[in-house]
């Protein structure tokens, strides 16, 4: 019993090669460089990765308890006196304080960074109540709010640096589950810019977050069938890289968007809005179809809800088949 008490239960915390761990380490380092940075937590520091910041800079870590509405508005007050608050909690609880983000942060024009861990089906076994599939759409609708969803731990770290240096309100997703490494240490992240990870001519797969790795796999599957797919990493959902989206439409004539989010209003919505105004081409959406998630391992859920590479490849074939139908 004594040994058990000393070691405690085996917690499934922010360990391994996750985006939340990458964020946690990045913000802890950035905090030592910029004394304006403070971190706000709602009793989930072990899950969001901010325990690293708390360990290194305890005087700049503010525990708000399980009270996200007060935390979100108070972040506006901290920013009003010149600090740079990073508000951190799970993505669903950011949705809980959406109206506080609207009035106290976005409307007031405050330099607050909202960093949301545990987005999408990537949350896994905690189930449907915990899997935010609406956050990109909701925060994208707030005027002046920049919305970011990085794809791997390296990009997460670079994005955190960019967000800390950026002046203005930001909503940024991290991720719960271990993520595949896609980028080298010298990866460059610029807010508002997407990047072509693989060239192709028949269709473009535009993805964010965990779906970027799956889109690369889908391009391989498609290549095996003689289809040449461009793959674009689009970590900034807002402002969307409209020039790159238009270029994809121009050069490949068909587009698939892929995101661990509802098909309504997130990356797919942002890309479609661009295309409607620039160059309408067939678009197919890979995402969760107007329903909630449920418990399961992330890969099982991705398969069950149609987010895996074969689903993206199938969507690409549908998009290609529709070429020429729009006039």
């Amino acid at each position: 019993m004594a040994a058990l008490a000393e070691s405690g239960p085996s917690l499934i915390g922010a360990s391994g090669d996750t985006l939340r761990e990458a964020f946690g380490r990045a913000i802890a380092r950035l905090g030592t460089e910029d004394p304006r940075i403070v971190v706000l937590d709602a009793d989930v520091a072990g899950g969001t990765g901010t325990h690293h910041f708390r360990a290194g800079l305890p005087d700049r870590f503010y525990q708000f308890g399980i009270a996200e509405q007060n935390m979100m508005s108070a972040a506006g007050g901290l920013a009003a006196v010149g600090l740079v608050p990073f508000v951190t909690t799970f993505a669903v609880f950011c949705l809980r304080a959406l109206e506080q983000a609207r009035l106290s942060i976005a409307y007031a024009g405050r330099n607050v960074k909202i960093v949301a861990s545990h987005p999408g089906l990537d949350v896994g076994p905690d189930g449907g109540s915990a899997q935010a599939l609406e956050d990109l759409a909701a925060f994208r609708a707030l005027p002046g709010m920049t919305v970011i969803s990085p794809a791997d731990p390296i990009e997460m770290a670079r994005a955190t640096e960019a967000v800390a240096a950026f002046e203005g309100p930001v909503y940024m997703r991290t991720g719960r589950s271990p993520a595949r490494r896609l980028f080298a240490d010298d990866h460059v992240f610029v807010i508002g810019k997407g990047q072509i990870l693989r060239e192709g001519t028949d269709v473009t797969l535009i993805a964010c977050g965990v779906e970027v790795a799956r889109a690369l796999d889908a391009a391989e599957l498609l290549a095996g069938g003689g289809i040449s797919a461009r793959v674009v990493n689009m970590p900034t959902i807002k402002p969307i890289d409209a020039a790159l989206v238009a270029d994809c439409a121009e050069r490949t004539g068909a587009i698939v968007t892929a995101e661990d989010h509802s098909v309504h209003g997130g990356l797919g919505g942002a890309v479609s809005e661009c295309l409607a105004q620039s160059r309408p081409v067939p678009v197919e959406f890979v995402g969760v179809r107007d329903c909630f998630g449920r418990s399961g391992e992330p890969e099982e859920l991705a398969e069950a809800y149609g987010l895996t590479a074969p689903h993206i490849a199938a969507a690409a074939r549908r998009a290609i088949a529709r070429k020429g139908e729009t006039r």
Partner: peptide, 18 residues
């Protein structure tokens, strides 16, 4: 900015803390 009740109070708390 205020007009949604409860929020100004929390913003004031953030200012006092800051």
């Amino acid at each position: 900015s205020t007009g949604s009740l409860g929020q100004g109070f929390s913003v004031a708390i953030g200012m006092a803390l800051g």
